[in-house]
Simulated assay, not measured.
Amino acid sequence: MAESDGLITIGVLARASGLTASALRFYDDCGLLAPARVDPLTGYRYYTEAQRERAALIRRLRAIEVPLDTISDILSGDTGRAERLLDEHVDELKQRALDAALVAERIKQALGVGSIGDRVELSATLLAEAFEQVRAAAASSREIPVLAGILLEASANSLTLTATDRYRLSTRTVVSRDRQGADWALVVDASDLDPIITWLRGLDEIVTAPTEQGLRLIGDGTERHCRVIDEPFPDYRVVLSNLAPVRTRVVTARKPLLDLLENTSPTVRFEINNIGLTVSGNHLPATVTGSDIDLHFDVATLLPAVHTALGPDLMLDIAAADHPIVLRSATDGDLTTLAMPTRQPAER
């Protein structure tokens, strides 16, 4: 299958729409943007040129946190219904318009960053959020120094941040606004990040660039530096690729689940069946596909993963009760976190 056949690859669609390939796979699994064709031998996804506009619209709607089912209504319903649904978000849209005007004014001004070779420009707010979300999975000890860091990888149209302490793993991809130079990767020391995150939250645009001394961050005429840990980072992609096949998938609203976990006992039970999701006796609306399954979690393990998820919706990919579950979400990029269920409490 080639692009000359009238179809484009997932990579081409990602670059054209401003979404990552992982986010496009997420929207395929949600039933929101199914590829025009999937190669039965390789599993490669192919899309039509007409789907480029739909992908771009999905990204814009997710940027203002429109729920997945509402996006489906907006894109498949009549214009009157779409207008009514969008009006429900008018306050957020007004605020975003003000923010966009401020960003546009700042971009017109000289950044004063001088000559930078390999560089990635992106939203400072999104980078601050990504640092906070991912560093929860970094090791707190220095037994293995590199695990106390966060891996940054610049490639294609995105910056990916990953951390793991061998028991947890979290990886977040942020779509870049501009990119120059070659691909690069380095591991920043997570202990340097508190003042960096505070600084980033006061900026609009940020330029990240690797140097021999560490990571250089430039924004609004000032700059900061993060130390790097000069050791090979574990190949987390091997961990993700070797996960067992998904037997059960759950899509549910994030906030009700988060509220429940913040006000429950140290251990929770997930009962998943064709009726939906029940957490320690509390029913939550959910879309479930696949086999029925019961799971138990330590709240201390699961709560951070749900708390840092992106957007209003959360997808749980489950292989078995004794395998890590994969929590996936996608807004302004995508976030993937692994959380290990605990053993079922012994019956008395």
Rank of each mutant, 00 (worst) to 15 (best):
V113E: 15
P195W: 00
N157V: 12
P341M: 08
Q95G: 13
V12I: 10
E231L: 15
A97L: 12
D317G: 07
S170K: 03
D118R: 12
R84F: 10
L260W: 10
L338T: 10
L284Q: 08
G149H: 05
V268A: 07
T160L: 13
T160C: 12
L102Q: 09
T267E: 09
A124M: 01
S158M: 08
S280P: 04
G114T: 00
A36E: 15
V250F: 05
T208G: 00
D220Q: 11
S176Y: 06
D178V: 10
I218N: 12
S17F: 10
F233V: 07
A124I: 00
D235I: 02
V90A: 13
K255M: 11
A182N: 05
I293P: 02
V66R: 01
A2F: 15
G117C: 06
F131R: 00
P145W: 03
L215D: 01
I10T: 15
S280R: 04
G77W: 09
R348S: 14
N263V: 01
L68Y: 09
L314G: 01
G181K: 05
V268Y: 10
L302A: 02
L33N: 08
F131K: 01
R247V: 04
T173I: 02
S155T: 14
R54I: 10
G6N: 09
I64A: 07
P341L: 13
V228R: 08
P312G: 06
P285V: 03
V175L: 02
E3Q: 10
P67D: 06
D5L: 08
I64D: 09
I325P: 03
P312H: 08
L127W: 01
T9C: 11
H225Q: 14
R249E: 15
S17C: 06
I8F: 04
H323M: 10
I275H: 09
F233Y: 14
L24I: 15
A36N: 09
H89Y: 15
S191M: 10
A300E: 14
I325S: 07
A56Q: 11
E262W: 06
T308G: 07
L243K: 08
P67E: 08
R249I: 01
R166T: 14
A185L: 09
I293C: 05
G219Y: 01
E3A: 08
R62A: 13
L159T: 03
D178C: 08
D73M: 04
G149N: 11
P312F: 13
